[in-house]
Simulated assay, not measured.
Amino acid sequence: MLLSSLVVILQFLVVAAAFAVIDAVWLKLLNPFYRGHIGDLLAQRPNLGYAVAFYVIYIAGIVFFVAPGARRRQLAERRRLRCPPRDPTSGASAFPQRQDLLRAAEGPCHVVQHG
Results as ranks from 00 to 15, higher is better:
1 M>S: 10
1 M>T: 09
2 L>C: 04
2 L>N: 11
2 L>G: 09
2 L>E: 11
2 L>D: 12
4 S>G: 01
4 S>P: 00
4 S>C: 08
5 S>A: 11
6 L>K: 11
6 L>S: 10
10 L>W: 07
12 F>H: 02
13 L>R: 01
13 L>Y: 01
14 V>E: 06
14 V>I: 15
14 V>M: 11
15 V>Q: 08
16 A>W: 03
17 A>Y: 12
18 A>S: 13
20 A>T: 14
21 V>L: 14
22 I>F: 13
22 I>Q: 09
22 I>Y: 08
24 A>M: 10
24 A>Q: 07
27 L>I: 07
27 L>V: 07
28 K>I: 01
29 L>K: 10
30 L>A: 02
30 L>N: 14
30 L>H: 05
31 N>T: 12
32 P>Q: 04
32 P>A: 03
33 F>S: 08
33 F>E: 03
34 Y>F: 15
34 Y>I: 03
34 Y>T: 04
35 R>P: 00
35 R>D: 09
36 G>W: 05
36 G>Q: 07
37 H>C: 10
38 I>C: 06
38 I>P: 01
40 D>S: 14
40 D>V: 11
40 D>Y: 04
42 L>N: 07
43 A>S: 13
45 R>M: 05
46 P>L: 12
47 N>E: 12
47 N>T: 08
51 A>S: 13
52 V>E: 07
52 V>A: 15
52 V>I: 15
53 A>S: 09
54 F>A: 12
56 V>R: 07
57 I>H: 06
59 I>A: 05
59 I>L: 09
59 I>S: 09
61 G>A: 10
62 I>L: 13
62 I>V: 15
63 V>A: 02
64 F>Y: 13
64 F>I: 09
65 F>L: 15
66 V>H: 04
66 V>G: 03
67 A>M: 15
69 G>T: 04
69 G>P: 02
70 A>W: 07
71 R>C: 00
71 R>D: 07
71 R>I: 15
73 R>N: 11
74 Q>M: 13
75 L>A: 14
76 A>C: 01
76 A>M: 05
77 E>S: 11
78 R>I: 04
81 L>C: 02
82 R>L: 10
82 R>M: 03
82 R>C: 05
83 C>Q: 03
83 C>E: 03
83 C>A: 01
84 P>R: 04
86 R>D: 09
88 P>S: 03
89 T>G: 06
89 T>M: 11
90 S>K: 00
91 G>E: 06
91 G>K: 06
92 A>Q: 14
93 S>P: 00
93 S>N: 10
94 A>R: 14
94 A>Q: 15
94 A>T: 13
95 F>W: 05
95 F>C: 07
96 P>E: 00
96 P>R: 05
97 Q>F: 06
99 Q>G: 00
100 D>Q: 12
101 L>S: 04
105 A>S: 10
105 A>I: 04
105 A>G: 04
106 E>I: 01
106 E>Q: 06
106 E>L: 05
107 G>P: 01
109 C>R: 02
109 C>S: 04
113 Q>Y: 08
114 H>Q: 08
114 H>T: 09
115 G>F: 12
115 G>W: 08
